[in-house]
Design a protein around this nucleic acid. Structure first.
Length: 423
RNA sequence: GGAGACGUCGCAUAGUUCGGCCUAGUGCACCACCCUGCUAAGGUGGAGAGGGGUUUAAACUCCUCCGAGGGUUCAAAUCCCUCCGUCUCCGCCA
């Protein structure tokens, strides 16, 4: 949810953001109007209520013989209060609905437009060239006994797989390397719930545009999370957190399995494990002071880049365009790694600065120096996922089908230097 | 899954019997000052959250919040319903 004060003070800023995202601009004016109506109806109700409260005392202390008449008058007053309360509640509901539909105002510099209007900030690393015909990760996975798609499909259906042998070990190694790096930056590790209540799912904004992406268990009214961001954001919901005592920020590294229905992407990336229903992820999540959010965002990107570099991957960092941002994000950087057999970059990480938008909805606050409460800023970013295996296998493959393990990962694989094809 | 107990403004509690004197009391912790002086004790005062009005701001003022949401009533922490959660015991199962 955006700051209602911003709507009153700087409506143009909100209008510009809506326009850049390709969202409704008139929604802003509807919300402003609803805000005015809300406040006037609340005022009317509260005045009546004050009258009722005062009159109630008169009734309570009145002598018995006068009570009858007073109660009759109180009944009439109560009816008016009830009506005014309903009007105020309706106006408040309408305002909440409209203001809730407005996405987080983008940060200056975010490119306008849709999916294709991103700006490439930098390209890093050498794209791998081959003097042989490179295999794609699905072939390599089979050759190495690392990925078993067929059996995944047999057991669970399309877009499921088994990681096996060095494949399973590689994923655990990636997660452990990511965790070690997160620990070095003072992230607190968390293994998070992957089933969450509706209000937490809604609070993180995933029930809106992503609703059909999410697995839902009707028997228990619980949602399976597509990222630990949901639980990490919910972790401090309804809390006033002490950022000062924590050194200005609270950082968590959440590990979890992630579940995605991939509705609407039928036919896309069907081969291999690029787009799957279930994978694992180590996610960084930061709670910071609003004024520190942009600096924290750049730090998260730098940790991601360091991870990709350690894995010997070529990549580009892109500034995602406004129309391709989630409603909670004010800016998002994606890092895409070069996938040789596809001849293109594919997203391996994403990091969003949600400013105070997500925190306002989840009611996560801190205390300012003057002692008042104010919403914190939240940020999230990927540090490792199962998908990285795709780029790592393809990038470091050799002509005989073996794969050279990047130096940085070897300590996490018992010193293993190469994955060799199984017989 | 069954039975029972419970949920009060940081923590701990009073209040629920029998609706109005609750504008939710008290203790601890906290903050400021005072006294005293040696790591403590005492004294005075302050202090919850959200939302209106007003204001440069402060101050002031009103409304709401007793797990959540409904209901009854002129009036609900208190009565009724639903849900959520915690604890104890029993059952079942990794």
């Amino acid at each position: 949810m955006i700051d209602p004060q911003l709507l009153r003070d700087s409506p143009d800023l909100v209008r510009r953001s809506q326009d850049a995202r390709g969202d409704s601009v008139s929604l802003v004016d509807q919300a402003i109007e609803a805000d005015a109506r809300r406040r006037s109806t609340i005022g009317a109700f509260e005045a009546l209520r004050a009258e009722q409260n005062a009159f109630g005392k008169t009734v309570a202390s009145a002598p018995k013989d006068e009570k009858q008449a007073l109660v009759a008058k109180a009944q009439e007053l109560a009816a008016r209060v009830k009506a005014a309360q309903q009007v105020a509640a309706d106006a408040d509901g309408e305002f909440t609905k409209l203001v809730g539909a407005i996405a987080n105002p983008i940060i200056d510099g975010v490119p306008s437009g849709g999916e294709d209007n991103f700006v490439t900030l930098r390209e890093v690393g050498q794209k791998r060239e081959f003097d042989f015909e490179p295999r794609d990760h699905a072939d390599l996975g089979e050759l190495l006994g690392a990925i078993d798609i067929a059996r995944g499909v047999k057991v669970s259906g399309s877009r499921f797989y088994f990681l096996k042998g060095v494949g399973a070990r590689l994923e655990i190694a990636l997660m452990n390397m990511a965790l070690d790096r997160a620990l070095a930056e003072n992230f607190v590790p968390l293994i998070t719930p992957t089933l969450v209540r509706p209000e937490i799912m809604a609070g993180t904004g995933f029930l809106g545009e992503h609703a059909d992406e999410i697995y839902y268990l009707p028997a228990d009214d619980l949602y399976l999370t597509g990222t630990s961001e949901v639980a990490l954001a919910g972790f401090h919901s309804d809390e006033i957190i002490d950022l000062a005592a924590a050194g200005g920020s609270l950082r968590y590294a959440g590990w979890s399995t992630c579940y995605r229905r991939e509705a609407g992407s039928a036919g896309r990336d069907n081969r291999g494990i690029l787009r799957v229903h279930q994978f694992n992820k180590l996610e960084m999540f930061s709670y910071v002071l609003p004024e520190d959010a942009e600096a924290e965002h750049l730090r998260l990107v730098s940790y991601q880049e360091a991870m990709l570099q350690a894995c010997g991957l070529a990549y580009r960092v892109i500034d995602v365009a406004a129309g391709d941002l989630g409603s909670s994000a004010a800016r998002k950087y994606d890092i895409e790694a070069w996938v040789p057999t596809q001849g293109t970059y594919r997203e391996l990480t994403s990091t969003s600065n949600c400013t105070t938008y997500q925190a306002r909805r989840l009611d996560i606050r801190y205390r300012t120096e003057s002692g008042k409460t104010a919403p914190v800023a939240t940020l999230n970013g990927t540090l490792a996922t199962t998908r990285w295996i795709v780029a790592i296998l393809e990038t470091h493959q050799n002509a005989d089908g073996s794969v050279t393990v990047p130096q940085a990962l070897r300590p996490y694989l018992g010193g293993l230097e190469r994955f060799e094809p199984i017989a």
